[in-house]
Design a protein around this nucleic acid. Sequence first.
DNA 1: TTAACTGATACTAAAATAGTATCAGTTAAG
DNA 2: CTTAACTGATACTATTTTAGTATCAGTTAA
Lengths: 133, 133
Amino acid sequence: MKLINKDTDYAVRALMELSSGGDSYLSVKSISDKQNIPYQFLRRVIAPLIKKGIVKSKEGSEGGLKLALNPAKIKVIDLIKIYHKEFKMSECMFRGKPCCNREGCALRREVIRIERCVTAEFEKMTIKTLLQK
Amino acid sequence: MKLINKDTDYAVRALMELSSGGDSYLSVKSISDKQNIPYQFLRRVIAPLIKKGIVKSKEGSEGGLKLALNPAKIKVIDLIKIYHKEFKMSECMFRGKPCCNREGCALRREVIRIERCVTAEFEKMTIKTLLQK
DNA sequence: TTAACTGATACTAAAATAGTATCAGTTAAG
DNA sequence: CTTAACTGATACTATTTTAGTATCAGTTAA
């Protein structure tokens, strides 16, 4: 029943940390220390952000991370989608099989409506808007 | 990432079935057949509904279930709460320990706001409103 | 008496979630 | 030219949640 899992939570916090880091490279270690995030976990969380071009990395000593995008361009909905694969609260699926009741399901139609509203909220939410609060 | 789990889904469908059953007792077996719900699972799902006074049961042969409340009085939010214990999408907890970042967490504040909106929607939704769609 | 029911609960399996460990390769500085 | 401080990649474990099954007991109408 959680909209946000640890991956998304840690990603958001790391990105907020990077936002305040200016143009210099910050090491994953320093972020994990400051934000109290398990180091190895954070490294795994950050990997897809680098692949997606949200974060830039520099290898080697004195290396680290910095933002590749403006904080205003980094939407929370995109982060959620990265760590959930499919952002679908109404996906009545289990072991690949869609629920047999799908088509006529009144509850499902309502959940889809609510989901659209939640998605819209996370669409508006960016690292920048979070920093402003 | 699901707002509704199988327990809630099955409970809603069983309650809709009971709504159209008038004042007679319907057996769990007949509901599970009609709605394609695993029988033993459905029995376990229904147990708390009986305890909470949402459904009335009659034991023995020719026994079964019927609604104890008007469909308009049965809120989906209450069902969700029954099967999730705590309806809290923003509960940054793991193994009983609250996340150390709780107080200053901008993301959490926003998720709480969104949660209030989702809760309000499920508060308005009843078995009756679902039957009308 | 028995078949059709509910009450209660213990069990298993799979998936999601959270966290750890370890291999390798890169780079700046001494 | 070595070494310490980094990232890249991935394999592993543990815990919790979710979904489903099995079984023993008691109740009641025919």
